[in-house]
Simulated assay, not measured.
Amino acid sequence: MKAIKLLLLTIVVASISFSCSKERTDTPIQGLNPTAYHQELNINYGPDADQKFDLYLPKNRNTSTKVLILVHGGGWTGGDKVDMNGFRDIIRQDLSDVAIVNINYRLANSNRNPYPMQIDDITSVINHLKENQDYYVISDDYGFIGVSAGAHLSLLWSYAFDTGENVKMVCSIVGPTNFTDPAYLNSTDPNIRALMDLYGVDASTEFLEEVSPYHRVTSNAPPTILFYGGQDPLIPTTQGTAMSARLQQLGVTHEFSLYENTGHGWLGVELLDTWTKLKGFTQTHL
């Protein structure tokens, strides 16, 4: 139950970050010991203050050690990597041989659009990991776990920007998938309209398709696991059901869970079900 509560904090609000980590802002020295556990906070991967990630490396790792990348939500304009610390903790407990990268990315505002900026940030993180692969003693096999806007970014990068085919699995928890969905285009809800406007007021259909995982996915997509709430006020149910149907059509390995009576986050038996399925999916495909 303790692990479930930690995960709940991630999905709904945020978790408390570790206090026993050191902060690194410069180039690491050589010689990490792969037999020892290692963690670092706020590793720079670009010049912007938001371009930082936290790194957790398991003990007794080797060049086959898989990497899970956590991507927070916040409507592309807010949120922080600390929001994913619940996932960090339960992964360390239940998937203790996996390396964890918990990222921040540049947040959108009136002067900078989320796309392609945030996709570029994920690319920069991946490039950093590859360039330092020998130093960290990890593989270049990656998995993504994203929540809400972070789930959208995780799917989009995995489907359209993973040119090296390094992503072995991707998880979307309440992530937008298709901005051409009539449930979005025809919505009068001010909260949904505000989210849509981030991707351009009166944006063209072509552009909305470009930023939609539903339209960018191919038969080569990595195994995908999807979780959605039937009463979510921000993410129409069709964002999950249509994405699942598209993956089925393309023959992509996937799992889909819809919790009919939950919203933009859940607890209790649904939360336990989410982690049980996600853990098993990760163990199988990452």
Score class of each variant (00 low, 15 high):
190 P>Y: 06
267 L>T: 15
196 M>G: 02
203 A>Y: 06
217 V>A: 08
182 P>T: 01
259 Y>W: 03
262 T>P: 05
166 N>L: 10
229 G>L: 10
222 P>D: 05
170 V>R: 09
176 P>S: 10
220 N>F: 09
270 E>D: 15
230 G>T: 10
172 S>E: 01
239 Q>K: 07
224 T>I: 11
229 G>F: 02
182 P>Y: 07
210 E>Y: 00
252 V>N: 05
159 Y>M: 03
269 V>L: 12
254 H>S: 14
249 Q>D: 14
197 D>N: 10
185 L>K: 13
172 S>G: 10
250 L>G: 03
191 N>M: 14
184 Y>Q: 04
184 Y>R: 02
214 Y>H: 09
256 F>E: 13
177 T>K: 07
208 L>Y: 04
236 P>W: 08
174 V>E: 11
199 Y>F: 15
247 L>Q: 01
227 F>L: 09
238 T>I: 00
195 L>N: 09
218 T>N: 08
240 G>E: 07
212 S>E: 00
190 P>W: 03
160 A>V: 05
245 A>Q: 15
190 P>N: 01
260 E>P: 07
175 G>R: 12
255 E>F: 05
160 A>H: 10
188 T>H: 12
193 R>S: 11
255 E>S: 12
251 G>M: 08
173 I>R: 13
253 T>W: 06
240 G>T: 04
229 G>W: 09
185 L>I: 15
191 N>P: 02
192 I>F: 05
183 A>W: 08
198 L>F: 09
197 D>W: 00
240 G>C: 07
163 T>E: 15
187 S>L: 13
165 E>I: 03
185 L>Y: 04
169 M>L: 14
231 Q>P: 00
166 N>F: 14
201 V>G: 04
263 G>W: 00
174 V>D: 11
187 S>R: 08
182 P>W: 01
192 I>E: 01
200 G>D: 05
183 A>C: 12
237 T>M: 06
267 L>Y: 07
231 Q>L: 14
162 D>F: 04
253 T>R: 10
222 P>A: 15
186 N>C: 06
223 P>C: 04
206 E>A: 15
161 F>E: 14
199 Y>P: 10
225 I>F: 05
245 A>F: 00
268 G>M: 08
251 G>W: 09
206 E>F: 00
264 H>V: 05
188 T>M: 13
241 T>E: 13
178 N>D: 15
212 S>M: 07
172 S>F: 07
177 T>V: 09
251 G>V: 11
265 G>L: 07
240 G>R: 06
163 T>D: 14
172 S>D: 12
228 Y>E: 02
237 T>F: 02
161 F>V: 00
213 P>H: 05
222 P>V: 12
227 F>A: 09
216 R>Y: 04
205 T>R: 06
177 T>N: 02
247 L>A: 11
238 T>L: 10
160 A>R: 09
235 I>N: 04
225 I>R: 00
198 L>P: 03
190 P>Q: 02
